[in-house]
Amino acid sequence: MGIKVTVNHNRCVGSRLCVGFLPDAFKLNGQGQSELITTGGVNAEEFVQTAGQCPQSAIKVEDAETGEVLFPPAELEM
C-alpha cells in the first residue's frame, strides 16, 4: 500500500521523537520542526506507530490511493 505522510507545522513542537524512532524517515528543518525525508523503506505500520508517539498528534498518515486516514483517529483531532 502506498502511503502519504504529512507533518502539520501548526502543531509540531520539535520534540524530535519521530526523528528518534524513524531517523531515516524524519529530519528537523531550520525551525527545529520535523519534516519528512521519505516514506521509502518504512512500512505503514511503522509510520502509524511513530505518529502515535507524537505528543502533538502532528503527523498524519494516509493511504495514498484511497485517502483513508490511518492516523490520527478522529478523536485525537483538535
Binding site: 513542537v13 520539535g14 520534540s15 527545529g32 505528543p55
Partner: peptide
C-alpha cells in the same frame, strides 16, 4: 509553548 517546545516538551 505552555508545555515548552523541543526535546523537553
Amino acid at each position: 509553548v505552555a508545555f515548552a517546545h523541543g526535546i523537553h516538551v
